[in-house]
């Protein structure tokens, strides 16, 4: 069975013992390799469980086929190619209460990639915000 290349135990991580060591110490793996993926760690909570189960793995599942979500005991571990976005207006509608992007940040535990907020949207992207792409200021209507 093939495993998504963004999975927690993808690639070399499936190997054990000598096979792992051979690849780990291989000459080509003695320098870093650029990656256009992003990683998001979400602390488990009532709201974040809903975001994961109902939105990212529910209504939005078809929007990003590279997204992998794994249950790692106290947290959800997510990895995707390109970016992951969470619209808190949509979360508010689902939760039936006001839920701002700062409410979301209460339980966002870690990010690998460039994470930022704009309005009520949280984004983590592989783009180099501030270098390749300007970080936008909030615009009023």
């Amino acid at each position: 069975m093939s495993i998504n290349s963004n999975a927690y135990n993808a690639g070399i991580m499936q190997k054990t013992g000598k096979a792992f060591a051979d690849e780990y110490f291989a000459e080509e793996n003695q320098v870093v390799h650029e990656s256009d993926t992003v990683v998001l760690v979400l602390k488990k909570s009532d709201e974040l469980n809903t975001v994961v189960e109902e939105i990212l793995l529910g209504s939005h599942k078809d929007q990003n086929s590279t997204l992998v979500v794994e249950d790692r005991a106290g947290f959800w571990w997510l990895k995707a190619t390109g970016k992951i976005e969470i619209d808190c207006v949509e979360v508010s509608e689902l939760l039936g209460k006001h839920y701002s992007v700062y409410d979301l940040l209460v339980d966002v535990s870690s990010t690998i990639g460039r994470a930022y907020t704009l309005g009520e949207t949280f984004t983590i992207t592989s783009e180099l915000m501030g270098l390749d792409v300007k970080l936008k200021d909030f615009e009023t209507a």
């Binding site: 991580m13 390799h33 650029e34 990656s35 256009d36 690998i112 592989s126 180099l128 270098l131």
Partner: peptide, 23 residues
Amino acid sequence: VKTWNRWVYEDWGGIWIGRLGKY
């Protein structure tokens, strides 16, 4: 070593440092 390989080498190395290569 697998924890280190994931978080330090692949993700920090690739997503933070690797992406800054063109700079």
